[in-house]
Write a protein that binds this DNA or RNA. Structure first.
Lengths: 218, 218
DNA sequence: TCGCCTCGGTGACAATGTCACCGACGGTTG
DNA sequence: CAACCGTCGGTGACATTGTCACCGAGGCGA
């Protein structure tokens, strides 16, 4: 199991020697869907590089409301929250395996070692940081300035399966956007009235993708 | 001018040799209040360590509305946006000198060199990242879940001078919170009606700090 | 079949955002 | 001084979003 490195574009140019270091001193972990990978009081001791699956990172407020910050997909890393949780334990973001997840776990000391020895690895890490931070900026821009109906349309398009299904409850969609369930219910009713979707218990089916896209482009 | 390093708690334990590297290969820059230090189409080529002054980092949306993300104070660094802008040029955060600013500018290659050679410097950089990211998480939590009257009270307390003055227009306060001027005007009227503040053109004077604090604690 | 829980619908209301417009203030200029 | 002009803040009407209390439908296990 030494070839997973090639799955990461940013790492493919790593020296053979350093590739060995990485594969020898990391291990592959598999976690089932639903596992809380890190969270308040559960700092990650390893840097995770996702080989397959999806990790959802979200924030929980005191009042119990939640918002999804971003997702980590296969061939991406969890750098941001890893480093973040190392220094500041007192906030409330958590990472949850949305699907079964397989990942390469790199211990902290190996991470440090790679940072020192490889400019390719440094670049990989800082690029990953940049991407995540850009994601956070986008989240801020959207919740501060964008209407929820537009954002909901965008989310449905983003989360739909190949068959056009979104298997989420209204509450889960509300968490995606950091809003309340009732708001989602009303917006979905309006979308349905316009014939853009068909909503059933725990599922939304996209019926008119073009119209939804036109609306989302606002 | 070799002693500025001691102003940074995270760097004070640096080896003498590395201190020389840092002071020899960086330079002190002074910029007047109001200067746009970095922004869209103006990526910073140096890592800035602030010796004095304040830099405000804010985001501008297409529609022209703005929101303040965080401030960089003396003895802190601009790591986040620096690295961020290096990789992704296409977003719209900008850094503005709120006061006259004096800073040590570290070129990119020196930054890389220090990262490789010093675990103290690495720790300094990653800790700075963590703090900024925690700030962003807090901004997200507040705009998504917190009432604007509470947030306004908190901002007034945070931004008041020693004499209890906040010299900002309603529009500027709106930018602090990512909301609209009219909303600020109405909330300030209510605060004034309760005797907590006195508002005049371009200025808010805190009159009852205790009451404001009690309200902000919600 | 019964009980229980989750999911979604609803109405009333509060809070916030948007729009159009207005007057007050302060500075500049003739 | 008087006229002008830009910024600042106030206002009412309305749309959107958030909150609360409550309800019924559906599913699932005892």
């Amino acid at each position: 199991m030494s070839d997973w490195i090639d799955q990461f574009p940013g790492l493919s140019r790593l020296d053979p020697e350093l590739r060995h270091t990485l594969t020898d001193r990391s291990r592959i972990v598999d976690v089932p869907a639903g596992t809380v990978i890190f969270g308040p009081g559960k700092a990650p001791e390893n840097l995770l590089l996702l080989l397959s699956g999806v990790v959802r990172v979200q924030q929980v407020s005191e009042s119990g409301r939640e918002i999804v910050l971003y997702r980590v997909h296969a061939h991406e890393s969890c750098v941001l929250t890893t480093a973040c949780l190392l220094a500041y334990e007192d906030y409330s973001a958590e990472g949850i395996a949305e699907t079964d997840v397989s990942a390469a776990a790199i211990p902290r000391n190996v991470f440090e070692d790679m940072i020192v020895r490889s400019s390719v690895f440094r670049s990989f890490v800082f690029t990953a940081y940049s991407k995540r931070i850009a994601d956070l900026f986008m989240v801020i821009e959207e919740i501060a300035f964008q209407r929820v109906d537009i954002r909901l349309a965008q989310k449905l398009l983003e989360l739909q399966s190949n068959s056009g299904d979104v298997q989420l409850t209204h509450q889960q969609l509300a968490t995606e956007l950091g809003t309340a369930r009732e708001v989602i219910s009303r917006q979905l009713q309006e979308f349905q009235r316009r014939g853009w979707i068909a909503a059933t218990r725990g599922r939304v089916a996209v019926r008119d993708q073009a119209a939804l896209e036109a609306f989302a482009a606002h």
